[in-house]
Amino acid sequence: MIPAAFDYVRASSVDDAIRLLGEHGDDAKLLAGGHSLIPMMKLRLAAPAMLIDITGIPQLDAIRVDGNRVTIGALTKHAALAASDALKKTAPALWDAANQLGDPQVRNRGTIGGASAHGDPSADYPAVLLALDATFTVVGKGGERKLRAGDFFREMFDTALGAGEVLTAIAFDAAPKSAYVKYHHPASHYAVVGAAAVLTLNGGSIATARVAIAGVGDSAFRAGGVESALAGVRGSDEAAVAAACAGTASGQDARSDTFASGAYRAAMADVFTARAVAQAASR
């Protein structure tokens, strides 16, 4: 499959990328790992006239832990996240997601920024980043904006990233009691259902919970009802956790495809959320 013709240029810095985006307008697309964009271009679902390769921009691929705050450069590859002991300790949910995403070759190439900016409802990171209540740093002509995950992810393949903006970093508070559990699509490796849980515990009981789901809705979403129901539940009490996780996808129009119906997806969202909560509590 051959994509439509385009021009290609490499950006040397974030400012350079913003300038190039300004010059080429809506016809331009940023290219990082390309593992979401290039398949779409090959199927001609996307046909940008200009690709601005940002992978050469220095210092955008670091994982930094600063006290309780974790900051990840947008160009950090999945493989680097999956191999990071610091991430495993500070945000095991994101580490889980990086390790379960795609396959080794995809992880060697794809980036957290690219996967997030793509806004794929079946992608793993959006759910985890929602549960981590992550902050997205985007830079444009007018300077820098900070967006919370809940504002960044909007709809299917749609984020709050402006046409002239570059996503540079994603930051969140350390969440050692967190987990991401995934129901793999047998062919695509995307999430049929992905459940992310970020907890704080008081003794063995859940004090606060943030829960987000991938694969089910038109975009990843927080399960607010479940979050409140989990408060006070003991993480090791399987039945109580399962009861609190009932109706994870309520209010969502769960998606159907050739592998799984909406009803099944919604039911699996409950099961996988309970598993994510139990795993997070046990960490």
Partner: peptide, 16 residues
């Protein structure tokens, strides 16, 4: 046809 590529038509990999 809805299962026209290996993104939809599942054949097992080594772990499956």
């Amino acid at each position: 046809l809805l299962t026209g590529t290996l993104m939809d038509y599942a054949i097992p990999h080594a772990e499956q």
